[in-house]
Computed example of a mutant assay.
Amino acid sequence: MCVIVTAEPGHMPDPVTLALMSETNPDGAGIAWHDGERIHVYRHPDNHRTLAYIHANWQAIEAAPALIHFRLATHGAVCLENTHPFPYTLADGETGWIAHNGIALAYTHGPYESDSRNAIDAWQQGETDLASGLHGKFALITSHGEIRWLHGEQPLTDGVSVSNTWWMDATEWTLPYELGYQNAIDDLEANGHDLYDPTGIPDWRP
């Protein structure tokens, strides 16, 4: 199913909410956020790493527009290449990052093993309309920091929208998950990760 989250400046889901989203969609997580000058992206197939990055940069991210995605794999391996959000470029020159929730049934076969990537590729080329709802739900953040839902926005709290709330059925943040999250935070801190330059995952610059 996956879940997309968008947050306007000054708003973020609380850490427990993010953990519940992650626990129920455990196959990769990513965030794209804009600091007022440029966009920053962190993606990792291990959700704990992305949650740790968000935690380590909480104040900066909370002050910024942000797009977050937690993946539940349906098509394609659990790997960085299939972890949302994905970069896009439109014919009018707009660039940014986009995330998908659902299954794009018409694009389960294509140049990529991910139906999401195939649908986004077709959209970039003007071959499909992601706002139709036929291929699932999509939200994006432009290289200038504009958040836009193409389809599927559902308000969660003030300034925060999601693609669905089925993850709310999870009843607890389990101890193994909590330990994995804390271990990732400890590892980030031990290795001196810079606020804007997470080691090991390239930071995308427009």
Rank of each mutant, 00 (worst) to 15 (best):
T6H: 04
G93F: 01
L150W: 00
H100P: 12
D14F: 08
E189D: 11
L195W: 04
I39V: 15
V3H: 00
A77V: 09
W173R: 07
D187G: 02
H100N: 12
R117N: 04
I103Y: 00
G180D: 08
E146R: 14
E37I: 03
D197W: 08
I185D: 03
V5Q: 03
L130M: 11
G10Q: 07
D187F: 10
H40P: 09
T199H: 08
G96Q: 08
D197H: 11
A122C: 08
P111G: 07
A73R: 09
P206F: 02
D115H: 15
A91Q: 15
A104L: 06
R117E: 11
T74G: 01
S116H: 10
E8Y: 04
H144V: 09
I68F: 06
H135P: 03
A66E: 01
L90R: 15
A184G: 06
W204F: 08
W166C: 01
A131M: 01
D121H: 15
H151A: 08
N164D: 14
S143N: 12
P85I: 04
A190I: 01
G110W: 09
G28C: 05
E23S: 12
D197G: 01
P26R: 11
E172C: 05
V78F: 03
C79P: 00
D121A: 14
L150G: 11
G102Q: 06
M12E: 03
G110L: 02
T157K: 13
H144G: 10
H100E: 07
V162K: 00
L51W: 04
E146F: 03
E94H: 04
N101F: 06
N25F: 05
G192T: 02
L175K: 11
L72Q: 12
P45I: 06
L105N: 13
D46C: 05
T199C: 03
I4C: 07
H135W: 03
P155G: 09
G76S: 09
D35I: 07
L156P: 00
Y177K: 02
S161R: 14
E113D: 15
A139N: 06
A32V: 09
A7L: 05
R71E: 04
H100Y: 11
G96A: 08
T142L: 03
W123E: 07
I98K: 03
S163M: 06
G200S: 10
T171F: 02
D46H: 09
L156F: 15
A56C: 15
L67G: 05
D186F: 01
R71C: 05
G96H: 04
P202C: 02
H11W: 12
P45N: 07
I4Q: 06
V162P: 00
A60V: 14
S114F: 07
L195E: 13
Y181M: 06
T165W: 00
Q59G: 05
P176N: 10
A73F: 01
T74A: 07
L67D: 04
S114L: 06
P85V: 05
I141S: 01
I103Q: 12
A29C: 10
T108R: 15
Y107K: 11
P45H: 10
N183T: 05
D92E: 13
T95R: 15
I185P: 01
H44A: 06
N57C: 14
I61V: 12
A139I: 03
T171W: 02
P111R: 13
N164P: 02
G136D: 03
